[in-house]
Design a protein around this nucleic acid. Sequence first.
DNA 1: CTTAGGG
DNA 2: CCCTAAG
Length: 453
Amino acid sequence: MEGGSSTSAGYISSKPDFSKLKGEICLDNLSIKELHEVFKATFGRDTTVKDKQWLKRRIAMGLTNSCDVSTTTFVIKDNKLVKEGKEDSSNNVNLPTGKEYPAASIEYHVDLLNSHGSQIDELQTTSGTRLGNNGVENNYASEDLAADQRAAKRVRKPTKRYIEELSEAESKEYSGRFITSTRNIGIRHLTSKSHVRPARNLSLEGRTVIMRLDSLGGSGIRVPCVCRVRRSRPRKNVMALLKFHPSGMGMTATFVRKDLDIRSSLIDNGSVNKLLEVKSSPEETPQQFVTESKKEKPSAELGRNMGLKYVDPSGYTSDDNVATVPTAKGGTRRKHHRAWTLSEVMKLVEGVSKYGAGRWSEIKRLAFASYSYRTSVDLKDKWRNLLKASFALTPADKGVNSRKHPSMPIPAPILLRVRELAEMQAQVPAPNPSASKLAACGGSVNEPRLGYL
DNA sequence: CTTAGGG
DNA sequence: CCCTAAG
């Protein structure tokens, strides 16, 4: 049995390689009496059944079970102990053996798959392509087998589904909110659920076969079940997951990458952190990058005079590798640092001039509709910085493109406008706060009670 | 959720 | 940019 490798299983149809099939052939050639002995050796009891087919299946299943136990990784307590093998529900082995080899052979291969979980994907594809019309018979065989399995080994059935239900129950308190309130995240959760749900229902019918297909077809990779546990802050959970499951990081990363590729093939940077970040903010569409980089230059409302080469034409897709979140505890954060582009700054200034400083959510919704990564808090912060910069502007810098400082991205005209707006809206950083709103009304700065007089 | 402010 | 207190 150990002689067989799951990869070579696909070649059976074309080139008979019986070296690994000894187990099955042996079983097949055994007489009833011998089968009885094997049965006893397997189950520790005698049997009176004389059906050769039944005996073979039963023995095969017994062997399968024992193998399962040895490879068990999860133990879930649900009144009873439920053990799960490394690769559950791998019954979907469309062995190209045809009718020559009874169900027993299939079971053996299932076991082989159990130990070669990583190759399941490949085997499925290969067998699927090579299979041809043999598939029908094998499907029948495995189906028939599944029927017997249900009665024979209940221990094996509860598998990934249990974990899902557990984690689902754990995060049940959030599920409601996701659907109702959270807009973007909710959608993602719905889709992810829709991938899982049918699998569960189908597998309840005892057809783990389909469940395997479904789960694999959806993601193309086996996702750690921990993924189902989501909290209100997905990004942190992703990191927590990675931290908790460092070995699975690569898989998770590729999975995310794949997911992104499905949604867009435009994102070109390979930074894992970046990708994770993008995943956590689904509304971030690559088209936005494109549009932004396009309308980057033309905006000449304020900066007609400025030749600005620092408009960061490097693009937004390949920008930051600044993701520094190495230290586990209060270490460096700076998860993502997006440099403010000139167009963004100008949009912000425009928005402030239109809607007024302080109404950041409005500005974000109206003027920054396409810049999803800028939150209203970001706008506020940026405006604060702009204010600081604008009032720190030396008179010499006014009117000219002060290219003195390399670290001075904001052109002077814009800063002037910022200062203008700030003064207009009485957003002066330092001055007396008592005259704030009234000053904007055109009243005297010194006399707050002017209207009163 | 939105603002404001400190860090 | 992050975090959090306050509406």
